[in-house]
């Protein structure tokens, strides 16, 4: 739970300044420092990173609306613009998971 929260907060903060892949580094670093097992690290990062993106996307949609989201869904020929939310969630979640996997693998290697 602590790892999950740490990744959630820190990955959200760094992405305000750094590119999207900074969350991969955050997940790796924190998994290295606080990961208990592969499952624990990967699952924490998967959920934390996914929720950061999903949450922020929902926040924007709440305050600014969905006009661009709808157009992008049409551009990508998606049947519904709501699919962009799970797509963004999965994308960030996978990014975080790969990072956590790498971070925890380094930890294991050094033990």
């Amino acid at each position: 739970m602590i790892l999950f929260l740490l990744i959630l907060v820190i990955s959200a903060l760094v992405q305000l300044w750094l590119p999207w892949w900074s969350m991969l580094l955050v997940a790796a670093l924190l998994s290295y420092l606080a990961g208990k097992s592969y499952t624990h690290a990967i699952l924490s990062a998967f959920l934390a990173c996914g929720i950061v993106w999903l949450g922020y996307a929902l926040m924007i949609s709440g305050s600014e609306g969905n006009l661009m989201t709808n157009r992008v869904a049409e551009l990508l020929t998606l049947p519904s613009s709501w699919l962009l939310y799970p797509i963004s969630f999965i994308f960030a979640a996978v990014t975080g998971a790969i990072g956590a996997w790498s971070g925890f693998a380094i930890k294991k290697f050094r033990q």
Partner: peptide, 12 residues
């Protein structure tokens, strides 16, 4: 797809 930099930010 990033809500920090991507198309989401162009919702207005």
């Amino acid at each position: 797809f990033s809500p920090f930099t991507g198309f989401w930010q162009n919702n207005e």
